[in-house]
Amino acid sequence: MINMVLLMLLLASVYAIIRLDRLLTAVLLTSLFSVLVASIFMVLDAVDVAFTEAAVGAGVSTIFFLAALAIVGRQCKPTPRRKIIAPLIVVSATGCVLLYASLDMPRFGEPLAPVHQHVAPRYLNDSAAEVGPPNIVTSVLASYRGYDTFGEVGVVFTAFIGVLMLLGAGTRRTSIEPPTPTGAPKESMRKKVVLKEVADLVIAPVLIFALYVQWHGDFGPGGGFQAGVIFASGIFLYALIYGIEPAQRLLPPRRLAYFPAIGLLLYAAVGIISMLRGGNFLNYSVLVNDPLHGQHYGILAIELGVGITVAAVMINIFFSFSERSL
């Protein structure tokens, strides 16, 4: 029942996104889409994924879309009819293939499905003895699948470099300083009394919650990815309310640009250290004498690396967007 309602809302929001030519409304509807998808994940008991979807899809990516809209404008150009046909064919063909493939999929919740047969029983039964954390998602993500997560952090880092290249960060840094007439900021500050009070009230709990999500990821839903995004959104709030310059004074962009690499290197360093101590790359059991303790320290360290990379990437991208739109 609740699945059907969520699915209908999902379809309705997708239809609205496709039909709208006002981009601002479309962006807000994509945020709604992410919230709905997060609710569906929640119904499916995938708490970690729902958390990530809510934080990244509904929160941060909406802010990035809005920042991009500030550069490119709010209206989309009407597409000529003849340009529609080829994409329509491609999309329909892909959709048909996917529908055809879904016929072969096992029934929902089928215990004999391949995903429940391969490695899942081992994760469920042995992860407490082999890795330790009560949250099995964390032990799969950080320890069993440590290579994959390392790759993901690498992807985030690479995407960050790509965005910086596209936005041309660093080339316009000198041009942003002068243009502030002295009267204007004071005027806009005066109007934001309520927002400032609310921001003062909210920012510190947001940052603390980010740290909680970071360090509590072993026990509950959460981890480096979500924590990084939440931390970054606290900084975004500060920058949106108080202006970009105080935020850049707090976190100088030039120094902040090193942090994505630092997080990734921290992750890699854990792997290297475990190799030096005689294990495989990213095998945390050899880090200290007790394998379980080693797993625990290793997971904490790599989650910290993930969190640093994600938070720094998000804040950097936000800063470079706002430099462009000035």
Binding site: K191, V194, L195, V198, L201, V202, P205
Partner: peptide, 19 residues
């Protein structure tokens, strides 16, 4: 948090429209 943030955002919306 819901109360504080969402009411503040509605205030910001109305304020912006007014300005």
């Amino acid at each position: 948090f819901l109360l504080v943030t969402s009411l503040a955002s509605i205030h910001a919306l109305a304020q912006t429209v007014n300005v």
